[in-house]
Design a protein around this nucleic acid. Sequence first.
DNA 1: TAAAAGTTTCAGAAAATATTGAAAGTACGA
DNA 2: TCGTACTTTCAATATTTTCTGAAACTTTTA
Lengths: 167, 167
Amino acid sequence: MNHKEAKLKFIQAWGTMGTNWGINRAMAQIHALLLTAIVPLSTEDIMDELNISRGNANMNIRTLLDWGIISKEHKPGDRKEYFSTKKDIWQLIRVIARERKKREIDPVVKLLDELEDFTGNNSKEEKELRKTLTDIKNYTSTASDLFDKVSRSDYGWFVKTIVKLIK
Amino acid sequence: MNHKEAKLKFIQAWGTMGTNWGINRAMAQIHALLLTAIVPLSTEDIMDELNISRGNANMNIRTLLDWGIISKEHKPGDRKEYFSTKKDIWQLIRVIARERKKREIDPVVKLLDELEDFTGNNSKEEKELRKTLTDIKNYTSTASDLFDKVSRSDYGWFVKTIVKLIK
DNA sequence: TAAAAGTTTCAGAAAATATTGAAAGTACGA
DNA sequence: TCGTACTTTCAATATTTTCTGAAACTTTTA
């Protein structure tokens, strides 16, 4: 396998992985393409490389921009927008932590807050329900804090704490 | 809101959350139903409570059993299978860690292993690609170790390390 | 061992998600 | 202000995922 094949395989596979990560195929592929590109690419470049439509390319580029994962630049004398991404994976992880927290954790916290104070007579059944909900809430808020921590910490923190943690 | 309403709302919402967690609605709802039930429930009970078909109920119950999240029991003089779940949330988190690692992390590790040794002439472009892939691999294997650690650790470990970590 | 009671499977239907492509919108330069 | 070069939007379409329900299978009991 030469490096072009490796790159192609990486882009294809990253698209499939994206699916398991709750990120759509096109978005993950665009990101992989930019991650392995040596120069910024235009929307057309991306469309051609990945064989996707303009609408699809545009929409997913916008989302990646919104998330702050890729950035836009202009070449002098050219109206097109060109896109590139920092090759800093820790930065990427921080963004993922932020977005997944938003999607996966925040709604649980919101739900549990709403459920917290149901009224009742403190029967055994009610006590059990209260306990279950409280337990879930405790773990969830810990997870929430952990994701916040990751999304706000620098690489030094990662090495110092996470890497040690798993030893 | 009384406790029946709270419970119903929890089950409904847990189904929706499941979606964001990569778990299908029915499976998440069945789990929520058992988590808040005070007695074991049969397939029919589950079908009735959640308004889902027998096929759907059966299939998702099997998956929950496979994952070790719920368990099966029999009542004397009754042929039906009854299902229940431990109300231990930490245990649930460990299973989730195991399953998500399997789905989200292991395939990345496998991919990166395959890509690792592409051949080439060590041009600048190739060196960059190698570096990017190596970086991803390092973070991924740390994540892999972390998920393993979670799925194998007891509640004491959680309190001692994770809770401190985020302070 | 036959009927009854329960469980599993799976092809087709329905629902949810992602993608296309063409029309509408915007910004720039002459 | 017009034409050109792009970007954005969105209704229609395609794809993927989930759900249904009935038939096939298994286990138990009489």
